[in-house]
Amino acid sequence: MSSRIVSWARKRSPWLYHLCTGTCNGCDIELLAAITPKFDVERLGCQLVGSPRHADVLCITGAVTKKAKERFVRIYNQAPEPKVVVAIGACALSGGVFAGSKQVDPGADKHVKVDVYVPGCPPRPQAIIDGIYKALEKLK
């Protein structure tokens, strides 16, 4: 019974952590626009937090550069279970235009388990809200 209440409450109050692994800042700007009052992802109960130790939803943007790779896996392991990972933008999904460069190791799903993929370069704020909304159905 208590676990059901906890999972119900968790679904209605997910905390976001925004992790940039070497973007051009396009997806970052769109993700921040999704938090502003015009689009307002906080309607779903989300809140942006500053530490991965508080987070339920990890939003990953950017092709994973070689320097960010080690830190990325470390931050993923710091987030408590249960957690969902949302990969935002073409770079986080497969490298996008940076695929094939020797400075990046593209594809966030190569390093951690990714739950929701949001394609686009960059995706619209509504598309990001849609991705987070679909991620909440996996959060149990």
Partner: peptide
């Protein structure tokens, strides 16, 4: 159409 988010790569 813009809402392309999915649980797998499309």
């Amino acid at each position: 159409k813009f809402d392309l988010a999915d649980y797998h790569k499309t």
